[in-house]
């Protein structure tokens, strides 16, 4: 006699909590062949705005953590992902309708990519910043700093790897994130938020919305408290209008990705979400 399974309720992840959409809306997530998998929360404009508030309030703590600490906290997420490897593989196998080998490869790459980014937390400043030999009695130093709140449209054709590839680099420098998961493949995103909730990442650092990117992204693109807009996964949206909306407050915009890997790992992905601060310290004349 087979045991009756206990299915999971998939909700949003905002400010370290798991609310349903304030709109009360859900949408059906199915397998590729159309079988019912779950009802995911369909986030609204209000949910997006709540997520920005949570992300903003988390900026000072996360960006103020020491680089070593941020690196360890990020690495710990990889440890927890590894522990839930089987769960992610099975979720991806079901929802993407791919082989267990392909699902395994995706999860393993996602974990490895997370580890790669975690290691950058206490190094990217050394690589991207420098001392400047100005002509005068000044100690002049340029260092990159996080830009603040980053709104992200995750790649839409990948459950976990796409999401990790855009979220991890934003976190390295100390930004906080509001990410819209893949609309059709949202289950791994919510499972990832369970990992985040039980890791040492402070609530609000990562906020995950499920639902329609076409509906939610315009509110984030025009939100005055968002500093950067990563449109990596927005290639199928009317992203030009999103870039135009982002211009109103001169957000930093990453245009949609192309090719096989929409967000291949790179240092650029970290530094694109930073600001270079240059400080002139006066030397006394002795």
């Amino acid at each position: 006699m087979s045991r009756l399974a206990v299915p999971k309720t998939y909700k949003l992840y905002i400010g370290g909590k798991f609310p349903r959409s304030e709109s009360g809306r859900t949408y059906e997530v199915t397998t590729r062949s159309g079988e019912f998998l779950a009802n995911a929360a369909k986030a609204s404009r209000k949910d997006a705005r709540d997520a920005v508030v949570a992300a903003r309030s988390a900026v000072s703590g996360w960006s103020g953590a020491t680089p070593y600490n941020r690196g360890q906290v990020l690495y710990r997420i990889a440890e927890l992902l590894e522990g839930r490897r089987v769960q992610f593989i099975s979720e991806i196998e079901q929802s993407e309708g791919i082989s267990i080998e392909a699902a395994t490869a995706q999860v393993d790459e996602a974990i490895d990519r997370w580890v790669w980014y975690a290691g950058w937390a206490d190094k990217y400043v050394q690589v991207a910043g420098n001392a400047n030999p100005v002509s005068g009695p000044y100690f002049n130093l340029s260092v990159p700093e996080p830009t603040g709140v980053v709104a992200i449209v995750a790649p839409q054709k990948s459950s976990l790897l796409g999401l990790v590839s855009v979220v991890a680099p934003a976190l390295v420098a100390g930004n906080t994130v509001v990410v819209i998961a893949s609309e059709a493949l949202p289950l791994s995103a919510i499972s990832l938020s369970e990992v985040l909730a039980t890791s040492d990442v402070p609530g609000g650092v990562v906020n995950i919305l499920t639902g329609s990117p076409a509906e939610i992204t315009p509110w984030l693109a025009s939100h005055a408290d968002v500093n950067a807009l990563d449109l990596t996964g927005a290639g199928d949206l009317d992203w030009i209008d999103l870039e135009i909306a982002a211009a109103e407050t001169l957000k930093r915009v990453l245009r949609p990705g192309g090719g096989a890997d929409l967000a291949a790992p790179s240092l650029d992905r970290i530094t694109a979400l930073t600001e270079t601060k240059t400080v002139w310290h006066t030397k006394s004349l002795i």
């Binding site: 393993d108 990453l254 090719g259 967000a263 291949a264 650029d268 992905r269």
Partner: peptide
């Protein structure tokens, strides 16, 4: 899983 270098269109 291939990590072809992709230019970031920032």
């Amino acid at each position: 899983t291939s990590a072809a270098p992709a230019e970031l269109a920032a």
